[in-house]
Design a protein around this nucleic acid. Sequence first.
DNA 1: GGTCGGCC
Length: 724
Amino acid sequence: MSPDSRATLRGVVERVTFHTEETGYCILKVRPEKGGGGELVTVLGNTPRVVPGEEIEARGAWVQNAEYGRQFKAEHMKLARPKSLDGLVHYLGSGLIEGIGSKYAKRIVDKFGTEVFDIIENTSARLQEVEGIGKKRRTEIRDSWMKQKAVHSIMVFLHEQGISTSRALRIYKTYGEEAVQVLQQNPYRLAADIHGVGFKTADSIAAQMGMAKDAPPRIRAGILYALDEASGSGHTCLPRPLLLENAAKMLDAALELVELQLEGLLAAAEVVQEHIGGEERVFLATLHHAEKRVAMRLRTLLERPATHPPMDEDKAIAWCQQKTGLALAESQQRAVKEALRQRMLIITGGPGVGKTTIVNTVLTILRAKKVRTVLAAPTGRAAQRLGESTGLEARTLHRLLEYQGEGVWGRNQNKRLDGDLFVIDECSMVDTQLMSRLLDALPEEAHLLLVGDADQLPSVGAGAVLHDCISSDVVPVVKLTEIFRQAAQSRIITAAHSINHGLMPDLKPSAEADFFFLERNSGEEIQQTIVQLMKERLPARYGFDPAKDIQVLCPMNRQLLGTRAFNEVLQDALNAGHEMQFEVERFGIKYRAGDKVIQTRNNYDKGVFNGDIGHIRTVESEPVKITVAFDDLLVEYEPGELDELQLAYAITIHKSQGSEFPCVIIPLAMAQFIMLERSLIYTAVTRGRRLVIVVGEQKALGTAVRNGEGRRRYTGLRERLGKG
DNA sequence: GGTCGGCC
């Protein structure tokens, strides 16, 4: 809204056409104070409570609605008690006050006039002077009125602090009549209690309320915020000196002051400090609890020998190979035996090392021995793949643990899961809190098989569970390196290995190679080269279908080399559309038949999962309907469901985790500096089965490859598992 | 130099 379109409207609320307490949204008919020929105008806005007869002062702008004509859209509205007698009758008789209808409203106003509020509040006994009002009704009127007044004064107070109506409503709903008190005592409680209010908002409210920069509640909130921020980038804790430094900088406060308040938080058990790995580390209480639970449960598991049915392992493996027709290599057989012997085992390794074959063999053998198996994975897509590759039911961890939203888990230490062997795939994506939920719900006698690639991108949430378990040296691990899927001389594989060791991969061009680096030193050149590769060079040379076989993987969404820009140019280049073709536009993105799309959240009704890639088969009009083919599965989308889809000519490397493609193209430049990290490049390169091409700046590739430990996550799990 | 991502 431009500043000159702002306007102020004053008048009397004649009618409340619509009002919902849920959001406070309202549509009012207002008689303006002056001018306008006394004609009613429509006002749209937000307020917790509005009563006909009230005087309104609204700030906002006039807008034109196609259906309803000119309306006043209020950003802010202030309502006040009516002053005129007519208004008073209207107001009191609106149902606002229990015990007063339109009849009594008239009688009361006739009797007391504008002093009516004073009478109700201070000398309510006088209400009994009105015919028909006894003691009971008089008390009812007074109580009801005082409650209304409290709500009103809270809203006025919040508005005075510069808090918007919708936020004020949420605050009022959370704290009720104590809202003002809560805010005056500690506005930082808002950050903890109100969704959508963070430290920064609370801090600016506190500043407006006149709270000093070095006030203890402010410093404490800042420390908690610094830890919360850290958990957002994957740390379950921070070394004490780093935490103090971060918090002091953000709060613009003295280090000693921060240190003092940290002691207060420790005493209040809101944070926990522990001496780990030769230094003091500070945790948020919740993460500390989760990490300790993980360590404790894992150590209990590890103390017990496996209790699988006794068997001759070699015979069992031979039987299984015969049954399935799959021949196991020596390294795979060793992994299977370990899994049969251990209470808990981690199987880790990159793509193509045969993790799936090992899991299948273990499952086949143990199921033949009547062992009850349970399969799960952290993402819907990974669960679906696990289910397909084993032919058994596999669920997301959230579904397995019967997650009900809002922190409620149906399965926990009081209601444990059923099963003898739990197989969790794609464990690199499991964070500390989810792992602690799983271990809590695991039966005492359960066996646990964790499968994943520790070199891939770390979990979204805080922690590095798989990493920490492996490096603790106390959890049995089978690390697979022998490649079965690709040819051993594959440059993709050797490049992936180099990257993992922090070395620049071999970039010398060779006609036989399946890994290429094309040096381009400007964003425009990189983009042009990739479009050309996809449209002309790769289909001509290798016979790839651009939309089906080739996947562009970007480090970022934004910028010239991000997914958004690539999707736009690649859609233009590969599927330009024509005049006769019906297309649907949504949020600036056009969807046409032939487009490559990706599903962005799990949809169990449709049977598609976050990360599934498909192609638009048809786009129909009247009614608008888009049909997408995911392999053999045809899925229909209504216009309102299109937010579940995005164009997928280019996707982020993060989103590609867990998928593979015949050909992968990776744009890489220093402009993506912030993202350049070893695990990112490793993940991208290992997505390609037959051909991987990196296009961009050699310096960017070098930066990424070297940046391995730079982004280490602060956790305490490794040490907890190790000793002490 | 300023970012990505899961689940219900």
